[in-house]
């Protein structure tokens, strides 16, 4: 079966982002960009399923600027077979991204569609669920185990109280949680090979999607700063402060 993996180019998770002085957004100039960590896990899961012989071909797709080719090449180096860049300089929102991905699903007919549970820039946690709704597909979100057998997917999900397992008809959408797997590093030969793998470029219009946003960002501000606290010397002092100063115990 074919697998489709959706990935996003985001600010590297180690970067502490700063809000721009004019409050229009966060500073992105000269900031290290990377594959969204959850999407790296999504690619890794697809590659493992291919290594097991369950998946035959892995297509990786992104909606984003021309520079997002870097992240597609990273995914190809990790083991994806070919890539699709749906190019736009607009910051597309989850509904539009889901519609574009639905267009790719209609064209490619994958039986397994893997996304990250959330992109660590917007922290939306929506796109996979929206894609599933648009396609009428079953979904296994926040997955920590994915098994494919008997024409179904069994997904163990991380939920507030613990773990839940669901069985999904195919095609199904899976979104990854951190413990699903530990992604490999791309080897140098694979990075070289990835440069020759096919990468198609499309536009949102090719999928009939024109409106990319419906939510306007009016301003972006830094969060309220916490005042620097004090370092206490002894546990007695700590308890005294908690009782008499902070009054929380």
């Amino acid at each position: 079966m074919k697998a489709l993996v959706a990935v996003k180019r985001v600010v590297d998770y180690n970067v502490k982002v700063r809000v721009k002085a004019d409050k229009t957004g966060v500073e992105l100039a000269n900031v290290k960009m990377a594959l969204n960590p959850f999407d790296e896990i999504a690619v890794e899961e697809a590659v493992r399923l291919k290594e097991k012989g369950v998946v035959s071909e892995i297509i990786v797709a992104t909606v984003g600027p021309a520079t997002a080719q870097e992240q597609l090449r990273t995914a190809l180096a990790l083991g994806a077979d070919r890539a699709i860049l749906v190019q736009t300089d607009e910051d597309a929102q989850p509904l539009a991204i889901a519609k574009i991905l639905k267009g790719i699903v209609d064209a490619e007919k994958p039986e397994l569609i893997i996304l990250g549970k959330q992109a660590i820039d917007g922290d939306n946690n929506q796109t996979g669920q929206m894609l599933a709704a648009l396609g009428g597909f079953a979904q296994g979100t926040f997955a920590s185990v994915v098994k494919l057998e008997g024409g179904k997917a069994q997904v163990t999900r991380e939920i507030d109280g613990g773990l839940q397992t669901v069985e999904l008809n195919l095609p199904a959408v899976v979104t990854t949680d951190l413990r699903l797997n530990e992604p490999r590093y791309a080897s140098l030969p694979n990075i070289m090979k990835a440069k020759k793998k096919p990468l198609d470029t499309k536009t949102p219009g090719d999928f009939g999607v024109s409106a990319l946003t419906s939510v306007k960002t009016l301003k972006v501000e830094p969060p309220a700063e916490r005042k620097a606290g004090i370092v206490v010397k002894t546990v007695e002092e700590l308890v005294e402060k908690l009782k008499n100063e902070a009054k929380v115990i």
Binding site: V17, V19, Q93, N124, Q126, V215, K216, V220, P223
Partner: peptide
């Protein structure tokens, strides 16, 4: 579209929500 994890209601169509792991607060309409 959905607006995720609002932390404040500014008006019936405008909300605050944290982005970038809470390192920025966006006001969205």
């Amino acid at each position: 579209n959905q607006i995720s994890e609002i932390t404040k209601v500014v008006s019936p169509d405008t909300f605050e929500r944290p982005i970038y792991a809470g390192n920025a607060i966006a006001t969205v309409q």
